[in-house]
Amino acid sequence: MLQLLQNEWMKIWKRAATHVMVVLLLLSVIAIGAITKYQENGLSVPDNENWRQGLEMENKEYQKQLDEGTVSPDLIEYTRSQIAINEYRLEHDITTNVDYSVWDFISDSSELISFAGLFTIIIAAGIVANEFTWGTVKLLLIRPIGRAKILFSKYLSVILFGVCLILVLFGFALLLGAILFGFPESSTPYLNYHDGKVTEQSMILHLLITYGLNSIDLLMITTMAFMISSVFRNSSLAVGISIFLMFMGGTVTYMLSTKFEWAKYILFANTDLTQYFEGTPLMEGMTLTFSIVMLCVYFLIFHMLAFFVFKKRDVAA
């Protein structure tokens, strides 16, 4: 298995397109850093001695909106979270006078996880389909190795490639952010609101959790692209469907959730696990356990289809 994994890993990195993907990801981080560094506003926070009064006034306005019912139903929980966080700041004397730093830059760079996901999808869509297109699948299957092991090594290589891109993104954002913006002068915790309570998290732990949770969508879409590649032997189809669902799946699911209760069973209603930690579930009745179970079900279905079809396919022709 290790030898198979090494072979697949070498195949991925021998392609010039793979190196172009990494370079494009790094250039994207640099572009965000350059734009953020030289923008006129938003980086420097003035030393506001009356920040406590500002938070108190903000809370009064939020509470007034809640009492009068002028807050949109979708924003009620968000408004309550802001009130709770402001109260926690006041109680524990955590100032809002914090300049933009490397932690903020890493957080902003997390938007590029979808960009890394796009590259991973391209690799997943071609890693099986291209074997049939190039005719190399026959040479691959004449080895005294089970088809399941061959397919699993390809899938594992794709996932490792995706993890590699996420680590490169995080590491380069950390390096570039430290150079451009530096570290904060004092350690400021991240205030997390969950189940009506506010807790403190170290910024590095919060960012690691953020990158991890945001990678769930990447994992599921990549697995689907791998399944389509294995079943239909068409990399273009796999890329097209996967990219479309990656960017439109969430929007379409949200629209359906406003009218149909069964929308909660759709894959994209469950890929955003941050809704259970820093927001509200997409639909009433959804829980973290429910979403994890749904993700596992889809994950198993994708793999069952991919492995079943690949093991039964006749490649003699």
Rank of each mutant, 00 (worst) to 15 (best):
L27M: 15
V29I: 15
H19G: 05
T18S: 11
E40C: 00
I30Q: 03
V23R: 07
I32Y: 12
V23G: 02
K37S: 13
I35T: 12
M21V: 03
A16H: 07
L43S: 03
A16G: 08
I35G: 02
G42Y: 09
T18R: 06
K37T: 15
L25G: 03
K37P: 08
E40Q: 14
L43W: 04
I32P: 12
H19L: 08
L27D: 04
V29D: 03
I30W: 11
I32D: 07
L43N: 15
E40M: 10
V23D: 07
S44R: 11
A17H: 06
G42V: 08
N41K: 07
G42H: 05
L43Y: 06
L26E: 07
T36K: 11
H19Y: 15
T36Y: 04
N41S: 07
A31N: 08
V29W: 06
L24K: 04
S28R: 02
K37R: 15
I35N: 10
G33I: 03
K37Y: 14
L26I: 14
V45G: 00
V45R: 08
V23L: 13
S44K: 13
S44Y: 12
V45K: 08
E40V: 14
T36W: 00
Y38P: 01
L43Q: 10
G42R: 02
M21W: 13
I32F: 09
A17D: 02
E40Y: 12
T36I: 00
G33P: 04
V23N: 06
V45L: 00
V20A: 13
L25K: 00
V22A: 04
G42T: 09
A17L: 05
Y38T: 04
K37W: 12
V20H: 07
Y38N: 13
S44I: 14
I32S: 04
S44E: 14
L25P: 08
A34P: 00
M21L: 01
Q39F: 01
A34Q: 10
V29G: 01
T18W: 09
L26Y: 06
A31K: 09
T36E: 10
S44D: 11
Y38E: 09
V29T: 11
T36H: 02
L27R: 00
Q39R: 13
I32N: 08
I32W: 02
S28V: 05
A31Y: 14
A31Q: 10
L27I: 14
S28Y: 08
S28E: 02
G42Q: 04
M21Q: 15
A34F: 12
H19P: 11
Q39K: 14
M21G: 11
V20P: 01
V20T: 13
G33E: 07
G33A: 15
L24I: 14
K37V: 07
E40L: 11
L24W: 05
T36G: 01
L26W: 06
I35R: 12
V23C: 04
I32G: 03
L25Q: 02
V45A: 05
I30G: 04
H19A: 07
L25V: 12
I35C: 00
H19V: 12
A17M: 09
L24S: 11
V20Q: 04
T18D: 04
V23F: 09
Q39M: 10
S44C: 00
I32C: 01
V20D: 00
V45N: 11
I35D: 08
A16Y: 10
V29Y: 06
N41R: 03
Q39D: 11
A34T: 11
A16M: 09
N41T: 10
